[in-house]
């Protein structure tokens, strides 16, 4: 026995399915067949509509997820920027240069010195020397637990660069441990004026100041004397 299919308007309905699928493929997710005829073919039409529904849901979910991920990413990027900025700020903050007396600058260093921090510190100190016109600066490393070759070299470089600017840089607060390390590493600090404590350095700096004043006063006296000869 042969089954007879009951299908009306076959041609038009197949054309409609093709149209709908084409619109969905081109991005129109609202297109549906919505057939009103009830016969043996309407099940297929309804199934296609359901499939399109599922697809639409899936796509929406994926879009939402992507948006969420993008948001998270930009948040992380912002946080990273903040962290970098804070690190930079910290570097600046961790090397405060202050003028403590006429002609005298002090830079107290606290904590571990790495190459980058020493570099920033050096630039800050030299800049401050030029800005203030102070000819004596004291780099106090009492609060530094240890130094390695690289950091010692940076310190050496700072002192030499300061001399090129026309200023003297004294290093104070060298602990026994650091003194040992420096000698063991074979670093030559003989060209640098070092003092045991910040107090010693301060006294030395004040004496230098006084001597400069005296020489200046002597100079002013010497000039008229010279003329009367």
């Amino acid at each position: 026995m042969k089954e007879i299919l009951n299908i009306k308007n076959t041609k038009e309905r197949i054309d409609r399915i093709e149209d709908i699928l084409a619109s969905v493929a081109s991005g129109d997710m609202d297109a549906r067949i919505n057939s009103e005829i009830e016969d043996d073919f309407s099940g297929i039409e309804a199934a296609i509509d359901l499939l399109i529904n599922d697809l639409t849901d899936e796509l929406r979910q994926r879009e939402n997820m992507q948006k969420e991920l993008e948001n998270k990413l930009s948040k992380i990027q912002d946080q990273q920027k903040t962290i970098l900025q804070q690190q930079e700020d910290l570097l600046e903050l961790s090397s405060p240069v202050s003028k403590v007396w006429d002609n005298i600058l002090i830079l107290p260093v606290i904590g571990t010195l790495d190459s980058q921090r020493t570099q920033v510190m050096m630039e800050n100190l030299l800049q401050k020397i030029v800005e203030t016109g102070c000819t004596i600066s004291i780099l106090d490393i009492t609060g530094v637990p240890t130094v390695d070759t690289q950091v010692a070299n940076h310190l050496l470089k700072t002192v030499t660069a300061a001399r090129l600017l026309g200023a003297e840089c004294i290093i104070s607060g060298i602990s026994p441990a650091i003194a040992q390390t420096i000698v063991h590493l074979g670093i030559d600090l003989s060209a640098i004026r070092t003092k045991a404590t910040l107090q010693d350095a301060m006294i030395f700096a004040m004496k230098q100041n006084k001597r400069a004043d005296e020489v200046r006063a002597l100079g002013n006296l010497a000039l008229p004397n010279e003329k009367t000869d």
Binding site: M122, E123, L126, Q127, I129, V130, G133, T135, K157, T160, A161, A162, R163, L164, L165, G166, A167
Partner: peptide
């Protein structure tokens, strides 16, 4: 007179420490 900090740092790294040369922070000094 008046060498810039960046120039001083670079000279030292270059290996030119100019020993024996007198320097001053500014004209007055």
């Amino acid at each position: 007179v008046g060498m810039q900090p960046a120039v001083a740092i670079t000279l030292v790294e270059l290996g030119l420490e100019m020993p024996g040369v007198d320097t001053a922070l500014n004209m007055e000094k």
